[in-house]
Design a protein around this nucleic acid. Structure first.
Lengths: 114, 114
DNA sequence: CAGAATCCAAGGTGATACTG
DNA sequence: CAGTATCACCTTGGATTCTG
């Protein structure tokens, strides 16, 4: 992940935080505010390998987008949950989703088939 | 650039379009709607090399975010201008800028110096 | 259950020099 | 003026295998 703190403009900070193949998906899966477990992401993102999933979760954690809480039970339970900064990201992700829909329409009209 | 059309979710489409080290800057430089020339970007982004600048401009052009118009004068003049889709991107970039500001504040309070 | 370790391929970025 | 061409690095993502 690119270091958000050496970005040359503010937008780059945000882009650095959410750029990552599965980060937007992860944040969206936590969008209702409730905590989710590692296996939940694995189940809903069948294509992502454990290494990559852990990597994306850790980078989001280090960026302060989500928290990782370990419950030392047997078997161990780990819960991920959005922070306030993470919740603040949701409107942007929704706007990105809306833009993409409109964009896809425009592109189709332009003559590209999908 | 990652192909927006093989994204696994809509948000990825938008991310694919604006992910690129200088793309957000370029779009913002065109935000008032008026056309800008190659040299303008070079002057305002002194760190970017010609190859990369051309690369970022071409990817934005291929994505339909901006247009590239060549005026066959001597010397040649090339003007870049945002499309409708590009203009629609501006609110998102502004939201990203605002989020980054709030984020930086929060991080500083958390104890990280910048 | 929730990862960690190792190895590897791809592509995005950049330095440098050159051109229609 | 507005680019191209070549070479090289380095980060990101991924396949596979293994573990507290």
């Amino acid at each position: 992940m690119m270091d958000p703190f050496q970005a040359h403009c503010k937008m780059e900070v945000t882009l650095a935080v959410i750029s990552g193949k599965w980060k937007a998906d992860i944040v969206q899966m936590l969008s209702d505010g409730s905590p989710r477990r590692y296996g939940f992401f694995q189940k809903n993102l069948p294509e992502v390998t454990p290494k990559i999933l852990t990597n994306q979760l850790r980078e989001l954690e280090n960026a302060g987008i989500l928290t990782r809480v370990i419950y030392p039970e047997v078997p161990v339970r780990v819960e991920y949950q959005l922070t306030e900064a993470g919740l603040d990201l949701l409107p942007i992700l929704e706007a990105m989703e809306r833009w993409a829909l409109s964009y896809i329409e425009k592109i189709q009209q332009r003559g590209c088939e999908m």
